[in-house]
Nucleic acid binder design. Structure first.
Lengths: 336, 336
DNA sequence: GCGGGCGTAGATACCGGTGTCATCGCTCAT
DNA sequence: ATGAGCGATGACACCGGTATCTACGCCCGC
């Protein structure tokens, strides 16, 4: 009578001589079970290699076990770190990770996202920056009954729905590092307007300058877009000024790499003629020449915490995760 | 009587005054439906915002709509490209992508993987290199009734279960590029033993040398491990030889980046004193200085094709995807 | 001796879909 | 007239789990 295919709860019940409900109790570690019965059922489960069907469970429990990662992040390494972190946080649970990159620029973005969330009925999603900063997306999740946690560089939501670094403090630290090396003319390559992280990082930079009695003049600031090419163009503008800056802080590593290229193209040696600091501690940071001094964003740890926040009710998971300066070889005292 | 929550097929049936089966026929585009009935049901579906429950569907159909990506690849950009490609291939279908990095080095790896495949009952998985080269994993998928497609640098399986580049040809082309520039002493940084891609790339390299009447001496070869540090160490060995090579081919970009560092550490200018070619066209390739000449592995296109192979029965999806040389700035004629 | 409480297990309905087969009203060839 | 064939629809069981409620045996106090 048994078909081929994987064994079901009915097969286990029949072979163990109990009802399906009893098998269900064994699976779910119900305390009201005779030890002997439990043992017998467990033996059959092992012999049959029975594994509960998650779809059936999801249907009966009216909830599923899919956690989504929604992102629109140009930085592959950061996304991978976050994925890895989420898997860390989900380890040992029955939740599975599904990934959904979206295109923030597409006009149909919100509809696409709604479509996915409705169709798949995800249990919850992690929103990565920059889309984590979009309140419309958070509201959409809420409206669809999908739990969410946002990952960001500052507290944008209630702590239960947020894991946050403190980019402001970390960037201030980086700027202080440059100031301590003797730099006074420091260029700043910002992130795209509307990105909270860009805002926070600039605020931290300005605060550090202010603490040293310096102001950030408009000529020292160039807008970037978190891309390599954008960093290159921004650095070109900064370096063509007279006097040119002796150091540059870029709001991410990609742009810092672009700044490095721009410096090279002008015959400037790094770090002797120009010091550079980036942000993210992405893979390229260590692989550039010279290795890039940067700020590490604790993406993996944060993502793991975010995943636990999604699946746990208790609010014992921390919300704040400090970023840290990683000194490498791209900073030296100014020559002149 | 209606609870809150999302509307179900029963709600639609009741409001449209038809049976659930008829609603099911509308959802599944059954041809045996009166146009008027279909219209009426569709109207109710739209008004209610009804979306079929994928878990219930999966249960009734005895198959689900989850496609997995299993990888153990150190290169984040490649993994992201593959993810993106799979989503390209899955677009417009009801399949969802789940991601599962595994640790090939862990002794429990096969058990972990078995656990995941059994629990989630994935419809199919895409195996990325290097684990795609592991026949034990492929056999495990087969034993668990999980379809799979392997992605690799040569045809390792039947075409229905494979998408392949032809690394041998592409590397021969890269080597020919160096030879055409006038190089005769060309070092080779290999990949880890046991990696098919490493084997293929070396074979292509040797073939190109042979075609030019050259042999690959053991002194010209250094073993690498596809990591930055490994490439650095291997290049160091090659560059300390006398006479040193005037060009180096590295089996991936990470190692090429390491070679670049090793050259810098010895005061050698790239490309004037040393030409370098990598493989992968990963993000760092374009961001290094000088921008790295490399071979593009068509990961996104291949992954899209692999995804379609997984979900389609017809064997109309192509299996071979040529790699292409991307000339940038790291190759020049030898000085001496 | 008997009702009540407790621990253990089963019967049954249900989650939200799909497959199978029966039904019903037509048209059309005989 | 009649029944075969066909298009459109519904009734019902089923997928593999879980929740709810009931049943049963047993010990207890009265």
């Amino acid at each position: 009578m048994r078909s081929s295919g994987q064994p079901t709860i009915n097969d286990v019940a029949r072979l163990a001589g109990v009802s399906k409900k009893t098998v269900s109790r064994v699976i779910n570690d119900s305390p009201l079970l005779h030890a002997e019965t439990r043992r017998r059922v467990e033996t059959v489960i092992r012999e049959l290699g029975y594994v509960p069907n998650p779809q059936a469970r999801a249907l009966a429990l009216r909830r599923n076990f899919l956690i989504g990662l929604v992102h629109d992040n140009p930085n592959a390494q950061t996304v991978m770190n976050v994925q890895q972190g989420m898997l860390d946080g989900l380890r040992g649970t029955e939740f599975e990770l599904v990934v959904r990159p979206i295109d923030r620029a597409a006009p149909t973005m919100l509809d696409d996202l709604r479509h996915v969330l409705e169709r798949q009925r995800l249990f919850g999603v992690l929103l990565m920056p920059p889309i984590s900063e979009d309140d419309a997306i958070a509201r959409l999740c809420e409206a669809l009954g999908c739990r969410y946690v946002r990952m960001g560089s500052a507290l944008l939501d209630t702590p239960a729905r947020m894991v946050a670094s403190n980019d402001r403090v970390a960037v201030a630290e980086a700027a202080a590092h440059l100031l301590a090396s003797g730099h006074r003319r420091i260029g700043f390559i910002g992130g795209p307007a509307g990105f909270r992280s860009a805002h926070e990082r600039r605020a931290g930079f300005e605060a550090a300058l202010a603490a040293a009695g310096l102001a950030l003049g408009e000529a020292q600031v160039a807008a970037g877009d978190y891309s390599f090419a954008g960093g290159q163009a921004a650095a070109a503008r900064l370096l063509d000024a007279d006097p040119r800056p002796t150091a540059i802080f870029a709001c991410n590593d990609e742009m810092a790499a672009g700044a490095l290229h721009a410096a090279r193209a002008r015959g400037l040696a790094v770090p002797d003629d120009l010091s550079i600091i980036g942000f993210d501690d992405s893979a390229i940071a260590a692989h550039l020449w010279p290795p890039l001094t940067t700020v590490r964003w604790p993406s993996r740890t944060m993502a793991a915490a975010a995943a636990r926040k999604l699946i746990e009710d208790e609010a014992t998971v921390p919300t704040h995760f400090p970023s840290a300066l990683i000194p490498r070889g791209s900073v030296a005292p100014p020559r002149c």
